[in-house]
Design a binder for these strands. Structure first.
Length: 434
DNA sequence: AGCACA
């Protein structure tokens, strides 16, 4: 735990790229705005906006690698992995203006929960601090200038935070906004309750780190773990058997699964799932966390990043498998899997509609995950699906070749957060954008 | 009306 305080703790989980991937941009943005964002750091040669089901993701490509690095570095917050930094910093910069006078907004949520993104749609959020009072959850938000603050106040006061920005269990959050009496926020640390987006070198608050300095808290107070290409999934409420093949199918929807190891822990089932790269694991985790494999909350997944990066699978059996080894796995030696499959799944469970949660916009045109094969009894969209490249090409689960255990009531895959595992552009051709 | 500091 030594050695951390004076240096910013950037953690780059990806090799540098000329292409930056921006996630969680609030609402739609334009190509012009993306160019404005990147211009201070170099020559923007390509952009793609309105990517993803929520149209809140984008790509920026620079002419030179160093320019992309410069942008990342500038907006890096020392308390977060680089991927999240991109997301936060860039969302704070949308519709940006750069001027002098400062003004504060005070806002209040009618329920617990905090989303800086809400404000960043209107301009560069310089600093934010949150706190709880008897009246509710409050925050001070400092913008770059008064005009920006005024437009944000006028647009947001009395309105609700978009559902997709909120956790499922949080009800409607109505904002109340007035001007603050403060003139300048003085943020001493980056922490789970306050941020200074103008200063990437601000130290991380000790309270936001654990003993080893490894984990930090996100602005929402949740733990941020170092990202990994290996996920640790624990399964709760396990009314039905979860087999290796079921896990393989569920996790393969986001990219090729290299290895799976299942084991029992504290009376529950856990599994380590290995992807070839971190980004695929990030997408899978964000999409699957908290959701159930079967309708009715059965076999609910809780997913975290593993400390492992490469599992060593000693033997292929019904609890562990290395899918990268070409020797045909003896799937047929377990004919009982189907027989053991829970009967209620086949008839009693209603058609799978697990992902009608608000954070997954029900935008069928934008679905990029494999749709249920015809015959599953769920409504298939009329329009052809646009799938990311790896869905067509990865050898582990060709589209339409779902394992037989896929039963009615099994989870469908969510539509958003489904990004290609690389931060290159080609997966989103120009025909995908209006 | 209500405004932080690890």
């Amino acid at each position: 735990m030594a050695s951390v305080s004076s240096q910013p703790q950037f953690r780059y989980t990806q090799p540098p790229s000329k292409v930056l991937h921006l996630r969680n941009l609030p609402w739609e943005c334009t190509e012009e705005e993306l160019i404005e964002l990147g211009k201070p750091f170099g020559k923007v040669v390509n952009t793609k906006c309105n990517v993803g089901a929520n149209r809140n993701q984008a790509f920026i490509e620079f002419a030179d690698l160093n320019q992309a690095i410069a942008m990342i570095s500038y907006y890096a917050s020392s308390s977060e992995p680089a991927q999240r930094v991109q997301m936060h910093a860039l969302s704070a910069l949308m519709f940006c203006t750069w001027p002098m006078s400062r003004i504060y907004l005070r806002w209040q949520l009618s329920a617990l929960g905090e989303r800086a993104h809400v404000f960043s749609a209107f301009g560069f959020v310089h600093k934010i601090t949150t706190f709880e009072k008897t009246a509710g959850f409050q925050a001070l938000v400092q913008f770059s200038d008064a005009e920006t603050a005024t437009s944000a106040k006028d647009a947001l006061d009395g309105r609700s935070i978009p559902r997709y920005l909120l956790p499922e269990h949080v009800g409607q959050c109505t904002l109340r906004i007035t001007y603050s009496g403060h003139t300048d926020l003085s943020v001493k640390f980056q922490s789970h309750r306050s941020r200074d987006y103008t200063n990437p070198y601000l130290p991380v608050a000790p309270s936001a780190m654990d003993g080893s300095g490894q984990f930090v808290m996100g602005l929402d107070g949740k733990k941020l773990e170092p990202e990994s290409n290996v996920l640790l999934a624990s399964i709760e409420n396990m009314q039905y058997a979860v087999t290796l093949d079921v896990l393989h199918m569920v996790f393969s929807a986001f990219g090729p699964v290299q290895k799976i190891a299942m084991f029992d822990k504290n009376g529950g089932l856990q599994a380590l799932i290995q992807y070839p790269d971190v980004q695929t694991a990030v997408v899978a985790k964000e999409a699957l966390e908290g959701h159930s494999i079967y309708d009715g909350g059965f076999c609910k997944l809780h997913i975290s990043y593993s400390r492992h990066t490469d599992l060593s699978i000693k033997v292929n059996n019904d609890r562990s498998r290395d899918y990268t080894i070409p020797s045909a796995p003896a799937v047929n030696s377990q004919p009982s899997i189907l027989g053991q499959h829970p009967v209620p799944m086949m008839g009693a469970a209603p058609p799978a509609q697990q992902y009608n949660g608000a954070q997954y916009a029900p935008n069928h045109e934008q679905h990029m995950m494999p749709q249920p094969a015809s015959g599953w009894g769920t409504s298939a969209p009329a329009v052809p699906q646009s799938m990311p490249l790896q869905m067509h090409s990865h050898p582990y689960m060709p589209p339409g070749a779902m394992p037989p255990q896929m039963a009615p009531g099994m989870m469908q895959f969510p539509a958003n957060n489904a990004l290609p595992p690389s931060s290159t552009m080609p997966a989103y051709g120009p025909d995908h954008v209006q």
